[in-house]
Amino acid sequence: MPRITPKTLLKAYRINPLLPLLLPECRTIDQAKIEYKWLSQELPLKKKNYNNIRLLKACQLRFRHYPLQYILKTQPFGNIIINCKPGVLIPRWETEEWCLKLISNVKIINDLKVLDLCTGTGCIPILLAHSLISYQKNTNFKGQLIGVDVSPIAIDLAKENSRQLASNIDGTSLSSVLQFIQGDILNQNNIINKNAHFDIITCNPPYIHNFIRAASVRCYEPKLALYGNLIFYQNLIDKWINRTDSFIYEVGDMNQVQFLYQKLKTLNSKDTWKVGFAKDSNDQVRCVYGYKSNNTRLPMNHIFEKFGQILC
């Protein structure tokens, strides 16, 4: 990454004295200006008088690579706004992208059962709930969406987010559709009812196994939600594969896709699994998905049509 020249800093200073503080994170003056606009528009206000100081403080935090989403306390995710707070991973646009792609294929199903592991802010089940409920206005959505996370902070935030959603959607009993459970899926066995069977398991597990370069992530986001390699994919094979018809897991690189693919190939099971991977708009391998090719309640072939590339 090229360094920011003093000339650029001076130029930014002449436009607005606070802009140089945003430059290390934004890199260009244009982006810094846009971010300054967001900060000045959306900064949660408390008292009228101290806004300038609050803006300065926010820019100073930004200078130290503190994430913008933690300052503004929100992040747009699809067409909803998710609350964020330190200690919980900020939803990424890549997750939003595959989530929206999934929603466009399942929005007509009114009894969908989804389990979201490592839910964090709860963004995936909440966006699913919002989209499905608002799409199926006349036929009440009767499915079940469950989010699980090990961190109590994350579960609190997810519950807060779902309460916010409930106030946006009136007349629907969201609590019967959407619930969040705190539990450690790696070590505990009885978090979810033993007999429950799901249509889709989604998961955005920690998948980084090397050094994180971006300071805003390295220094301020929870390590629990970031570092991990194959452990959660192994966990899928061990615990969840017999309890679902399909799965979507986010991945960081192709090795994780290959790992899961090899494991499923050698799995002793009566079902045959189709496994594929999907790339994001930035042309990076972003998620691995799989579905049973027969004996499923929903037409999985149709749901995962055009989702990505099937491995064979």
């Binding site: 989403q69 900020i90 990424r92 646009w93 971006a214 992530v217 960081g252 994001d280 990076q284 972003r286």
Partner: peptide, 20 residues
Amino acid sequence: RIDVMRARGKGGQHVNTTDS
């Protein structure tokens, strides 16, 4: 063609970009 203006790199959890 839909382009998102993203810096090169691994993306995902590795970075937390605000460029939309």
